[in-house]
Amino acid sequence: MDETTEVGAGDEGQPHPHEPHDASLASRLNWLRAGVLGANDGIVSTAGLVVGVAAATTDTNPILTAGIAGLAAGAISMAVGEYVSVSTQRDSERALLHKEKRELAEEPEYELEELTQIYRGKGLSDTTARQVAEELTAHDAFAAHAEAELGLNPKDLTNPWEAAISSAVSFTLGALLPLIAILLPPVSWRIPVTFAAVLVALAITGTISARLGGSRAGRAVLRVVIGGALAMAITYGIGQLAGVSGL
């Protein structure tokens, strides 16, 4: 994100200052949605792995080894990726906040007028908008501008460690389901039970994800279920070919 760009209404890439928001609620929903998606990734990737190995051999040890290795690798990969991503986001947020603090120190009158214009844009009269801007500025100018212009709470920035741990835990919990489903049943029932358990779990995560996003559940469930079924079918076919060829 370009730190030299002036922050204001209509700036490309910045939160629109006229949009109502609840930063705390949005943050909680985003974390919950990320957790659901992490669990979904754990389910699909581990299911594909263990189903592929189970198609090649009936020996439990290779299946267990592959499942645990996939779970560990996936959880670590998710954690590292989330940490890097959120750290970058946090750096951008800090840069924007630093810039806003500098502008408040150098051009307080301009910033006051800018805040007044924001509240005029929300539908307040000129007099009321000016009064609100002045009172917020007197109380905490920095917090007022950070929220109105950037949609940020300076005291509640994204935490990369929380993101990393959340992703690793959600992926692990999701990955445990297909791993348990493939190991507990008799050999002849391993594949059908795993397919059924995974598709049910994906339907549940798809429904939760759709509800959190405010969209219809049907389409979201269909996408994740079809995607998971295809992943398991493909890896199952590859596993069978590998087992037949003796690879």
Rank of each mutant, 00 (worst) to 15 (best):
S77I: 00
I76E: 03
G70C: 09
A69N: 04
D59H: 02
P62E: 01
I76G: 02
G70M: 10
T65C: 14
T58E: 15
A66S: 12
G74A: 08
S85E: 11
D59V: 04
M78C: 00
P62R: 08
T65F: 14
G74E: 05
V84C: 05
P62H: 05
M78R: 04
T60W: 13
L64K: 06
T65K: 15
A79T: 06
N61V: 15
A73E: 02
V84R: 02
V80C: 02
V86Q: 03
N61I: 15
G67Q: 08
V80K: 07
I68A: 03
M78G: 04
S77M: 00
G70K: 12
Y83H: 11
G70N: 11
L71H: 08
G81D: 13
A73I: 01
A69Q: 00
A66L: 06
A73G: 01
I63M: 14
E82I: 06
A69L: 03
L64F: 08
L71R: 05
S85G: 12
T60N: 12
S85P: 08
T65E: 15
A79M: 02
T65A: 15
A69Y: 02
G67H: 11
G67P: 09
T88E: 12
I76R: 03
E82L: 09
A79G: 03
G74S: 01
L64C: 06
A75V: 04
G70Y: 12
M78D: 07
A75Y: 06
G67L: 05
A66W: 11
P62I: 03
V84D: 04
T58H: 15
A73V: 02
V86L: 04
G74I: 02
N61E: 15
T60A: 14
T65L: 15
G67W: 13
L71C: 09
E82Y: 11
A69T: 03
G70T: 08
I68F: 09
A72T: 13
I68C: 01
S87E: 12
G81H: 12
T88P: 00
I76W: 04
I68D: 00
T60F: 11
A72N: 10
M78F: 00
A69H: 02
T60L: 15
P62T: 07
V80Y: 05
G74K: 04
P62V: 05
T58F: 09
S77H: 00
A72K: 11
L64Y: 09
T60D: 15
I76K: 03
G70R: 10
N61D: 12
V86C: 06
E82N: 10
